[in-house]
Simulated assay, not measured.
Amino acid sequence: MTTAAADPLYPSPDPDPFFAPPSDLATKAPGDVVRTRRIDTGPYVGTEGWQVAFRSTNSGGRPILAVTTVLLPVGVQNPPLVSYQALINSLGTKCNPSRSLFNGELQDGVGAMLPIGRGWAISLPDYLGPNVAYGAAKLSGMVTLDSVRAVQRAKEIGLTNSPVAIAGYSGGGMASAWAAALQPTYAPELKLAAVVAGGIPADLEQMALGLGFEPHPGFGLAFAAAMGLEREYPQRLPISAQLNNTGLWFRDFTHDECRRFLLFHGALRNADQLAASKSLMDSREAREVLYENSLRRFSGTPTAPMYIWQGIYDSLTPFDSVKEVADRYCHAGTPLTFVPYDIAEHMTTAVAGFADAWNYVESRFHNDPVPVRC
């Protein structure tokens, strides 16, 4: 059964009270710790774990409760900290790293452990916020920055003075790149040793127009991003009101699901099957929401050392928009290394680029001279 057509459909809340916001949340500053707890790290041998609930901010400037999961290498004193923005690309709370690290849904869980092997601590924030607002890029940047603040403020974890790097690919690359761009104004006190980001969705309007109304293998994720943005901007982006009965059914069917489910069940569908109208992209407000979440249109520039890699022929995250962002950063003085790969398949570029990205982070942790390659 569907809900009212005009209303967004939010994820089922996590039943664990650890994820519930306190009544005084609004009195806290962004990054303030609300509660912490030790956790069993299960399959991640050689680690000890914590979860930190903290105050962050949504796209409308209102306080929200967010959570990050921290894994520390056993026996390492004062390890550097990597905030790793994982591949969430999902709509359900069970898909957030706080859950998906342990329930099998986090597909890059093994890759996320590479920093542990280098003797670094890793923090994996639920950067889509409590409503799992997939596609809300500005939100993800703010939650990422506040997660670093919170981990440093949680004295029991022992990372208060650790050097910090931020890393991610695809949706995680978008969150990482937005964190870098927002840091000078949103969290100016944070010192970031490095930011590495690849496969960045830098222009949401370009991606939406490129998808069009024809079948596309990535349609399930595109639909999920539309639903996630509606959750974050319910008044400005009323997508549910534009869906037909099939679209409303598919929305309800997928609203608590994760990346693999969304890709599988969206593979043979397209917007023409699910939309009652093709007029949404004609809406000025809808386009403004896409602009507000597109790095290509955000005027802020990072000041931290940054490494970006991107597939030249990537049909999922277009190269030209990322190249334009990189050129602007270079002209503004960002200490940037930009590495294009002659690759078309989106996830192949992740594998190709992460080794050098981690080496870049290690060099920054060692205070080596910062290279610039534009």
Rank of each mutant, 00 (worst) to 15 (best):
A5V: 07
D24I: 11
S147F: 07
Q206W: 10
P238E: 03
G129I: 06
D7S: 14
D327F: 06
G135K: 05
D252Y: 12
Q183V: 10
C258V: 10
R236F: 00
Y44V: 10
G173W: 08
P115H: 08
N58G: 09
P238G: 01
V67L: 00
T185C: 07
A137L: 03
H216N: 15
R328I: 00
L139D: 06
L101C: 06
M281A: 12
D16H: 07
Y341M: 09
V372S: 07
R231C: 14
D146C: 02
T2M: 11
E214F: 13
S98Q: 05
T2A: 13
K278L: 11
G218H: 00
V195E: 03
S294R: 05
F354A: 13
I312W: 08
G158E: 00
L145D: 08
S170R: 04
K323Q: 14
I157Y: 02
T185I: 09
K278Q: 13
W120N: 02
A225F: 05
V322Q: 02
F338E: 04
L204M: 06
I122F: 00
P217R: 05
Q310H: 02
Q273G: 00
D40H: 13
L209D: 13
M1G: 12
F253Q: 12
L25Q: 08
N161D: 15
V151Y: 07
G119R: 07
A86F: 12
T334Q: 03
A222K: 02
V143P: 10
V76A: 01
M113T: 14
Q51M: 15
M347T: 15
H255N: 14
Q273A: 10
T348D: 15
R149G: 10
R55H: 11
Y134I: 10
A53R: 01
V132T: 15
L182K: 08
S12G: 12
D320C: 01
T254P: 04
G218N: 07
S277D: 11
F19E: 08
L237F: 15
S176V: 10
K278W: 11
I88F: 14
T93P: 00
E205C: 01
P79S: 02
L316T: 09
Y127P: 05
V325E: 08
I312M: 09
Y291L: 04
P188L: 09
A344S: 12
A5P: 01
M306Q: 04
C95N: 08
N131A: 15
F223K: 01
P130T: 06
Y291S: 02
